[in-house]
Simulated assay, not measured.
Amino acid sequence: MQNSPISNIFLDGREFFVKRDDLIDRHLAGNKYRKLYTLLTTPQEQYNTIISYGGTQSNAMLALAALCKKKSWEFIYYTKPLSQQQKQQKSGNFYEALSLGMKHQEIEEMLYKDFIASLRLSLDSKSLVVDQGGAVQEAKQGLEVLAEEILQEQSFMQKNNITALATPSGTGTTALFLALALPEYTIYTTPCVGDIEYLKSQMLSLVETLPQNLYILAPKKKYHFAKLYKEFYLMYNKLLDAGIAFDLLYAPQMWECLLEQTQENILYVHSGGVTGNSSMLERYEKKFNAT
């Protein structure tokens, strides 16, 4: 696999650089490729079943479905009960994951938390549970590969005076391990699922203390994950006009924070996830009568 390229875009008179991890693979792209790198390099015979859980907009779900198809592993994915509308969608991450062979199981909401907590109790040696969002210690290896790619671009980084990196956070795994691997850079992130305290708690489940070069930027208001916000739709189109398509779930909030709270030259690590845009754009167009 070749290193992902670096592009540049101009926003509000500022030049930003973008590490194009979205171009690695249609399904296994962005931070999910990095987080699942260890599994990608795992011998096929080591497992026959991968189990995970979460929401139906999940990029990790789709990436795991693609990985399991490549490895000929069974993929079982648990969610809370879905609406009929969700089940009938013919586009988006859930639909594509099913088309790749994912086996979907619904768990009643009142039982969901206890069921997920019990997933590892009866596993055999050929089965593996991957926690929601790929938030596992094994992600460290793939993110160290990403860090090494960035270090190989030192002449480019120095020439353009890039002193900081940015990536949005769900569980914070990508930002955390990047900060640990690249202490010479400032690493910016923002909590797109939950608040800052929730994000810190997720990161601290993987390490004892947070690195000093990791900065969590607070959004200007409380956003609820996967809900529709006109400013996110406008930011998506602003970025698209600048030349790059980003996801609608994480990227708009991160870019909003970067434009409002930073000044230095930044390399944004594109976390992928654009396969889910089709279903999100349908929702945006319906809500805001966008064309």
Rank of each mutant, 00 (worst) to 15 (best):
Q141H: 08
T49R: 15
V129C: 09
T56Q: 12
V130L: 10
E148R: 08
A135N: 14
Q88H: 08
E144C: 14
I76H: 02
E144I: 07
G142C: 00
K90Y: 05
I150A: 06
Y53N: 11
S155C: 07
V130C: 11
V145Y: 10
N59K: 09
E144R: 10
G92R: 09
F75L: 10
G142K: 01
D114N: 15
Q89I: 01
E109M: 01
G92E: 03
E109S: 12
L146M: 15
V130Y: 00
Y95Q: 08
M110K: 14
F94E: 00
K70T: 14
W73S: 09
K35T: 03
L36G: 03
Q44P: 15
E153Y: 06
F94C: 00
I150F: 07
S91I: 00
M110D: 13
L40W: 02
G92H: 06
I162R: 05
E106R: 07
A66L: 10
D114F: 08
Q85P: 02
I50V: 15
D114Q: 13
E109L: 04
A164T: 09
I150K: 04
D124M: 01
K35Q: 04
S155M: 06
S58D: 07
Y53I: 04
L67I: 13
L100N: 09
A147I: 14
A135I: 06
Q85A: 06
T42P: 12
K71P: 14
K113F: 04
E144T: 08
N59P: 10
T56Y: 14
L143T: 07
K35V: 03
L67Y: 11
D25S: 11
L111R: 10
N93Q: 00
Y77C: 00
S91W: 00
S52N: 05
S52M: 06
G54I: 00
K113C: 05
L40G: 15
L146Y: 13
T42C: 13
M110R: 13
L100T: 04
K140F: 14
I107L: 06
G92Q: 05
E153L: 09
E106Y: 10
T163D: 02
K80P: 09
Y53H: 14
G92M: 07
Y95L: 05
G54P: 14
K103N: 14
L123F: 10
N48R: 08
T38E: 03
I150E: 03
A60V: 04
M102Y: 02
K35A: 04
Y53F: 13
I116A: 14
E108L: 11
L28T: 04
L28E: 06
A166V: 05
L64E: 00
F94G: 00
Y47W: 12
A139V: 01
Y47C: 07
K90W: 03
L146I: 12
L100Y: 13
T79M: 02
G101N: 13
S122D: 13
N161M: 06
Y95H: 15
S58F: 04
G54C: 11
A147V: 13
N48S: 14
D131K: 15
Y95F: 15
N31H: 07
N160V: 03
I50Q: 05
Q132W: 01
A139R: 02
S118N: 14
L64K: 00
S118W: 04
E74P: 01
L100A: 09
L82M: 15
A147H: 11
K113V: 06
L82H: 15
T79Q: 03
K71W: 01
P81T: 09
K80S: 03
